[in-house]
Design a protein around this nucleic acid. Structure first.
Lengths: 192, 192
DNA sequence: CCTAATTTTTGACCTATATCAAAAACTATC
DNA sequence: GATAGTTTTTGATATAGGTCAAAAATTAGG
């Protein structure tokens, strides 16, 4: 791994909390750099999710199966963590799969290492609280935009909030994320 | 305030973290008991939300205005905190109003007191992280249940997750929460 | 490159739910 | 407990977006 890359991870933390040298060192010791190929499975619903991945480069989706079809819950890209949320925090299995939509380079942190960091660095607790706040806000906005909006408005809202990545995602996955059929999404795109 | 009531609040904290005597004392000193009458405004969108209320008894809703109509974002009841999330954490104004749907008794914590607690009791950071996890899970489930479900399924899911309170909420508010019209909800109810 | 597989688009038709309007059933207040 | 206000129900009609099916376009593998 190039030395500079982990700077992106540190900057991410530093946008929420100051990073002491000792915490930096512990982080360095506990994160592992790895790469998933396009289409590769990052997590399988059958297992307990024991790792969280910070995306350095690439794009992933979290999805589940409904009536045999894949329904995308959300996408994650550069500068975001991806894991199967409930599985990771509750140490149970859950319905979600994670797949790399592009070649994706990540820093991986195991759940037991995260627990260690929470136990020894109170600022990590604060980091978690503050960064969850950010996600929380996105979720609220999404819930709002899903009610009382036409399919077209949903798509426009999607392009707006996923501005940097919407053109890298297959149409069918966007449709299932938005809760509309791909035929409808195709027609919406056609009229522009 | 009856002495026993604050025990409910302490038990709430203790379901996430152990409560030291010193933290208990600080909490006691900083929480204020008060009551909102049915229909009373707890928070107004025009203001920055500087208080968070732990509901001891009662029911509230968080809503915003769209085209002059009130759209309910969610309901909160016994054992839950209610505030205007982004306004409270970012200290800005936001679109949300909060209203008491019943006579509602709360413990109120001011934002500066919460900041004090976060700064002096790292376990409070942990409490916040863990309790947000719970809410996070509910949100994910809600987002899932809002796509690819009929109006009837949405209502059934609502009755299931809001099992204890759904019968205390006016139909129109449930409809706007679910993103369907009240006429449709009325017809769904009729056929059972 | 060529072929197969996958994804997207287009077309025809149908259904769930929205909209508009008015009646009925509650609730609250004097 | 009569009156006014609010909430819920019922009815008639319209439409956005679903479903099913097949063609076109794109992507990937040998």
């Amino acid at each position: 791994m190039p030395v500079e890359t982990k700077e992106q991870l540190f900057r991410h933390f530093e946008s929420y909390i100051p990073l002491s040298d000792s915490l930096k060192k512990e982080l360095e010791d506990r994160i592992a750099f790895s790469t998933f190929k396009k289409g590769q499975e990052i997590h399988n619903a059958g297992k307990v999710c024991t790792e969280s991945h910070f995306i350095f480069q690439g794009l992933t989706r979290l999805y589940f199966l409904k009536d045999g079809k894949e329904i995308t819950e959300y996408f994650s890209s550069e500068g975001e963590w991806v894991n199967s949320p409930r599985s990771f925090t509750q140490r149970t299995t859950d319905i979600y799969y994670i797949e790399a939509l592009e070649t994706t380079e990540v820093f991986t942190l195991k759940v037991q290492d995260l627990v260690f960091l929470f136990d020894h660095f109170p600022e990590m607790e604060r980091y978690a609280r503050l960064s969850m706040n950010t996600v929380f806000g996105h979720f609220l906005e999404r819930i709002t935009s899903m009610r009382f909006t036409t399919a077209k408005e949903k798509y426009e809202h999607f392009c707006h909030t996923y501005h940097d990545i919407y053109h890298r995602i297959p149409l069918g996955m966007i449709a299932s994320y938005l809760g509309i059929t791909q035929e409808t999404l195709s027609r919406i795109r056609a009229e522009r």
